[in-house]
Amino acid sequence: MKILVVDDSRVMRQIVIRTLRQAGWDDVDVVEAVDGADALVKIAQESPDLVLSDWNMPEMTGIDCLRELRAHGSAVPFGFVTSEGSPEMRETAAEAGALFLIAKPFTADTFRDQLGAVLA
């Protein structure tokens, strides 16, 4: 099992990875990417089982990354972990093919609820 964590903040990547461990996924391989463009490269190289991505990032946003993936036929499971979760953003994310949107701040319970079905 391999998860790609995408965020321009190194601190937030660490927090997401720590929360994954706390939620019980302490044996998954984690790969990191610093923005959407980097994520596209890492997805091609690493074939992750799940992508957890921030929304607002320099170079390429998370939603642009997801749209690029789907436009090229990739069906990699993709979820957002982002600092806002308005109804409009949730709708946009779902329309683009995201499985879920976790709004920060989050807890290990939030991760278990949202990721459980995907990583079962």
Binding site: N56, S83, E84, E88
Partner: peptide, 25 residues
């Protein structure tokens, strides 16, 4: 980085309480 992330999440949550639609920088 820590300070930015705290401000980012505070901003995202404050934004959700304000009239929309709006975007976060």
């Amino acid at each position: 980085d820590v300070l930015r992330e705290l401000a980012n999440i505070l901003g995202g949550n404050v934004k959700s309480l304000l009239p929309g639609p709006s975007t976060l920088g």
